[in-house]
Design a protein around this nucleic acid. Structure first.
Lengths: 128, 128
DNA sequence: CGGGATCCGAGCAGATACTG
DNA sequence: CAGTATCTGCTCGGATCCCG
């Protein structure tokens, strides 16, 4: 077979190489939404939670921790009362959001085409 | 808040708009690997299965069906004995793989940085 | 405010067996 | 060859309670 980039990444994962770990992070819908939300000025925990409707505090916390571990997001604690915590993109994270934005634009542009395809597919399945 | 593309997509989803459905598809690791594998000439079912190590036949079948429903992948049956089925990207699917490839390249380029960040993070956590 | 700890149910994934 | 069907985990995510 011809070898594509993603496939190489996967092959390597099978040998316990970590490119795939990066892919797993990218393929997480909550992580994508959070990264996208952090594009701009630093944001506080509950602020993110309010903005990304439907995310639970648990999942938000877990995902932020993963992103911080990967060096994509920074976490800054301010010793106020009560405590204030700000999350922001690291320079590395910023390079990723540029790519992620491309995906988002694709989704916006091609949403209608996908929906039309779905309706056609479902209509054909109906006949059986 | 400032409104980003992905956030708009999510907001709309909360109102049952379908942009988010597209994002859910994109955020699926198996779907990404399959789309990437299909970039090129048409491929048969078991061929994909062999190439994408670790995928089960059930998940491959389900994911291909979703991708076909979304109009990203085409399925062609040849009346041989036994039956031959070829999967290929549709023109729409091809526009997506271009973007996906960008993500894959990001992963390749920044894998080392991510790993270093993880080690630093874990070392710091170790001290507690 | 920014989380951690716990419990619980649904859904997804793996293994196996069977079929046109 | 290209799947479907079934069963069985087992993880993920939601809800709730709590704390510094």
């Amino acid at each position: 077979m011809e070898t594509t980039t993603l496939q190489r990444a996967y092959d390597v994962y099978e040998d316990r190489c970590p490119t795939r770990l990066v892919l797993d992070r990218i393929a997480d819908k909550w992580a994508l939404l959070i990264l996208d939300r952090l594009d701009g000025e630093p944001v506080r925990f509950n602020h993110i939670r309010r903005d990304i409707k439907g995310i639970s505090q648990k999942v938000l916390s877990q995902t932020l921790k993963k992103l911080e571990r990967d060096g994509l997001v920074s976490r800054t604690v301010f010793a106020t009362v009560p405590v204030t915590v700000e999350y922001a993109l690291t320079p590395l994270g910023r390079t990723l959001t540029e790519t992620v934005a491309t995906l988002a634009h694709w989704a916006e542009r091609n949403m209608d085409a996908v929906l039309t395809a779905q309706r056609t597919y479902d209509a054909a399945a109906e006949l059986r």
